[in-house]
Amino acid sequence: MLTKRIIPCLDVKDGRVVKGVNFVNLRDAGDPVELASIYDREGADELVFLDISASYEGRATMVEVVKQTAGEISIPFTVGGGISQVEDMTRILRAGADKVGINTAAVNNPQLISDGARRFGSQCIVVAVDAKYNEDWQEWEVYTHGGRNATGIRALEWIKRAESLGAGEILLTSMDADGTKDGFDIALTRAVSSEVTIPVIASGGAGTKEHFHDVFTEGKADAGLAATIFHYKELTIEDVKQHLRERGVEMR
């Protein structure tokens, strides 16, 4: 049976990991390649790098990070952030990433999804969606630009459209749950996962082992993504996996 996946996410700016990372025995807490290797050894099923560099130079540095990471780890990894055209995808995938994540650029230009899928295959194209509950609509709205801009687009409609355009996977971040450590947004995740036939990665809100169990069972997610709890060693990947195995969820 296909296992559920646990995915740590690293925010990278100008080639350095930002947000706190609290591992012992690190030569350099800011080195994304070293951290990627550690997560690989600790049993991560996949990794996500989010490039939050604002400059051209920062983006160019990311390509170097991707090259080095591809040479070091033996699990798949996705790179998102700043990818706005097919050429950006080419650069990142050639450097050795397995998938690219697109968010704002896909909303602005949905054809980017189909162009990317046709060129590299759907399995390479992860559409990342930041969603927030809109009380007036009684459903979720898509936000872009790192959650700063409301788009007026309904999340479920957008995600179905992304799937039909050739997205291979959805990276779904709940802006309501993100940073709370109160658990993943089960209602949102379940709603999305029931609408599409492609895998859904749930993101935002992980605080305990049980939260992963909830999002896989009730939320019907295929993968769970987290940053802070892993970086600060509040939980190790093996802790989470062991707990899930005990609760009958298949893990690698």
Partner: peptide
């Protein structure tokens, strides 16, 4: 009636 592609870790 299942997810396609078959994507992820399998035994």
């Amino acid at each position: 009636d299942y997810k396609i592609p078959h994507m992820g870790w399998n035994r």
